[in-house]
Simulated assay, not measured.
Amino acid sequence: MQHPPIVVHQLSPSGGRRVTVRGRILGLAYSDDELLVFLEGAGLQDPDLVLDDPAWVEWRGGRAHEWAPPGSPA
């Protein structure tokens, strides 16, 4: 089985999630909007169309689209 090319890693203790594409770190995103900017910068056309597609994006260590650390106000 092939792994998705985009990985949104677990929440950091201070918030935000590391984003990698094919193992290359793009940065730390704090929202879907920031994630989309990273993916557009990596050359992905219409990245908003793939965020919920498990063939494209693997959300690790938390629910998809969750950006605040546990116990913090949303």
Rank of each mutant, 00 (worst) to 15 (best):
V21E: 02
V21D: 08
E58W: 08
G41Y: 02
I6G: 03
P47V: 13
G15F: 01
V8A: 08
M1G: 15
V37Q: 08
H3L: 15
A29V: 05
G27R: 07
G15W: 04
P69S: 03
W56C: 12
G16C: 05
E40K: 15
V50Q: 01
D48G: 14
A68F: 07
G27P: 12
S14N: 12
P4H: 06
G23A: 08
R60Y: 06
I6Q: 00
Q10D: 13
L44K: 04
A68T: 12
M1E: 13
P73Y: 02
Q2F: 12
A42V: 07
I25F: 01
T20Q: 10
D48S: 14
L44Y: 10
G62K: 06
W59D: 11
L35K: 06
L26Q: 04
A64M: 07
P69F: 01
Y30S: 13
L44R: 09
R17P: 11
T20I: 10
L36M: 09
P73K: 02
E66W: 07
V57D: 00
V21Y: 04
A29N: 01
G71F: 04
D53I: 01
T20P: 01
G16L: 05
G23Q: 09
A74S: 14
S12N: 14
R60W: 02
G62I: 08
W67K: 10
P5T: 11
A55L: 13
D33C: 00
V50W: 09
E58D: 15
D33W: 02
P4W: 04
E58V: 09
V37N: 07
V7D: 04
Y30H: 15
L44S: 05
E40A: 15
R60I: 12
G16E: 08
G27I: 05
L49W: 03
F38Y: 11
L39M: 02
G23L: 03
E66C: 12
Q45G: 00
Q45W: 08
V21N: 03
V8G: 09
H9W: 14
G61H: 04
G61N: 08
D48L: 09
A74R: 14
R60C: 13
G41A: 11
L36H: 05
A55R: 14
R63H: 11
A42K: 06
P47A: 10
P13H: 05
V19W: 06
S72A: 14
W67F: 09
E66Q: 15
P47Y: 06
R63L: 07
A55C: 10
V7H: 05
Q10K: 13
A42F: 06
L51V: 08
G61T: 10
D52M: 03
Q2G: 02
P4N: 07
Q10Y: 02
P54D: 11
G61I: 10
V7Y: 03
S31N: 00
M1K: 12
D46K: 12
E58L: 14
V8W: 05
P13N: 01
R18T: 13
A42G: 01
S14K: 14
L36P: 06
G43I: 07
L35W: 02
S12E: 13
P70F: 09
